[in-house]
Each structure stands twice: as structure tokens, then as C-alpha cells.
């Protein structure tokens, strides 16, 4: 049984006069990895950012339509955006740890949400680093700068930092595009582990990655959601010719 975590209904998004998303309807399943694919400028990252209202920070953006998280509209005026982003966290393309120790990076979120108990913080940091499959690699250098870690480790610090505030949905915007193949595979393995406890939406330019990590794939083109469905179906027998052209590399 799958249940819907996020329900997107008739979503339109405009950057001033330019319409970047056109009447998108999509159900994000709980505890599933949903991959968003499509050529550059197709709206997939824009779409990802609508899910925790990151687009609010960009000037001239207008959104209409409905996005329900657990049945509640996240665009209602009384929604606490900080709280929303705690629930729906984001990992970015380039690892962006804060210039502080590994420990402080991971404890950052719980601290600003008011956690002061040292023992409690230790617990959260260890648990989060373990969940990000990083604990074994950093446990004896917790108090050294996170910037001294490798790119792949830094990205996992960012994921641990995210997990520390106990989110429900993880948004990942090309989380491995700056990583080498081995670090990429580690993150992909991690995604497989995390999907048991979180709902994950990932934007990727790497089609093989989408095929490997996701259960559901959505294909965007020029702001339209062209097709979405089970990943194995999308990659073996897509219904739409445009999806076929894109995934077989015969676009345009």
C-alpha cells in the first residue's frame, strides 16, 4: 500500500511574465524515491523548490495551485515557512557545510530549534551521522572543521545536518553532480537506506542515477509534466514519444 505524502494540484509558477510550470499535477508517494528528470530549463528544479517554498526567496515569483503536505496546503498564508522547511528539508548540488566543526554542523538545526541539553545534542549528532552512514568515518574528528572532509563526506554532513531536525521529506537537487563516482554511489546507497524512513524527491541530470535510485520517475519538459510513473516502466517502455526521445538521448 502506498499513500500520498505530497499532492500537487494544478500548480502554475511564473517568474514575472515567464511561466516556468504549467498546470502540474503529481502525487508524491510516502517512503518512496521520486526522481525528476528533464532537460535544463524544463522546470524540474523549480518544481522541487515549490515543495518547501524555496521559490518564495526569489523575486517576482508567483505561484498558483495547491500543494498539500499530509493533506494541508503549504501555501496558505498562515503556514510557518521555517517549520515547513524543517519538515521538508533540502540537499543542494554542491555540498555546503557551514565553516564549523562536523559536530556543530549537525547540531546547528536542533540548537536553533532550542535544544541546549549537551547529552541530548550528542545523541542527535551521533544518530544523524549514523543515519547518513558517516559516523564511522568522522567519529574521531567530530570537532574538526567539516570543510576538511572530502566532497562526498561533506555532502553526507549536509544530509546528517538535515536529518538532525527530523524532517519527513528530503528534497535533493542534483546531490551528486559535484561528486566522484564512488562518492556518488555512496550517496545513492544512502538514499536507498533513507527511503525507509523518509519521502525523497530528487532532481538529477544523470538518467542512470534516476533509474538506479528511484521508484517513481517524473519527466518534465518546458514546464509541463509530460509523464510520470514507475521508474522501470519509464525506462523500459515510456508511453510518451517525448519521454522516449529524452531518455534514449535523441532529443530535438
Amino acid at each position: 500500500m502506498t499513500s500520498t505524502k505530497i499532492s500537487v494540484q494544478s500548480l502554475n509558477l511564473y517568474y514575472k511574465d515567464f511561466q516556468a510550470l504549467k498546470n502540474v499535477n503529481l502525487e508524491v508517494e510516502e517512503n518512496q524515491v521520486t526522481a525528476l528528470i528533464g532537460p535544463s530549463g524544463c522546470g524540474k528544479s523549480t518544481f522541487l523548490r515549490t515543495l518547501n517554498r524555496m521559490n518564495d526567496l526569489i523575486e517576482g515569483v508567483r505561484v498558483d495551485g495547491v500543494i498539500l503536505l499530509d493533506g494541508r496546503d503549504i501555501y496558505r498564508p498562515d503556514v510557518d515557512v521555517v517549520n515547513l522547511r524543517k519538515k521538508v528539508g533540502m540537499v543542494f548540488q554542491r555540498p555546503n557545510p557551514f565553516p564549523m566543526s562536523v559536530y556543530d554542523n549537525v547540531a546547528y538545526g536542533p540548537r536553533i530549534h532550542g535544544e541546549k541539553n549537551k547529552r541530548k545534542l550528542d545523541e542527535i549528532v551521533e544518530k544523524s551521522l549514523r543515519a547518513a552512514v558517516l559516523w564511522d568515518e568522522v567519529q574521531d574528528r567530530l570537532y574538526k572543521s567539516a570543510l576538511g572532509l572530502s566532497g562526498g563526506q561533506q555532502q553526507r554532513v549536509c544530509i546528517a545536518r538535515l536529518l538532525a531536525v527530523e524532517p519527513e521529506v528530503l528534497l535533493m537537487d542534483e546531490p551528486t553532480s559535484a561528486l566522484d563516482p564512488l562518492a556518488t554511489l555512496r550517496i545513492e546507497e544512502l538514499i536507498q537506506v533513507l527511503r525507509n524512513d523518509y519521502t525523497i524527491v530528487i532532481v538529477t541530470h544523470n538518467m542512470q542515477q534516476a533509474a538506479r535510485v528511484s521508484g517513481v520517475t517524473a519527466f518534465f519538459l518546458n514546464g509541463d509534466l509530460i509523464e510520470y510513473g514507475n521508474t522501470d516502466v519509464i525506462f523500459t517502455r515510456p508511453a510518451d514519444q517525448r519521454t522516449e526521445d529524452y531518455i534514449t538521448g535523441r532529443f530535438g
Binding site: M207, A211, F235, T236, R237, P238, E244, G249
Partner: peptide, 9 residues
């Protein structure tokens, strides 16, 4: 070549 869809078939 990582064939997909019809190429894979």
C-alpha cells in the same frame, strides 16, 4: 551506451 526504452528493448 546505457541503452534505455526502445534502444534497450
Amino acid at each position: 551506451q546505457q541503452p534505455m526504452a526502445k534502444d534497450l528493448r
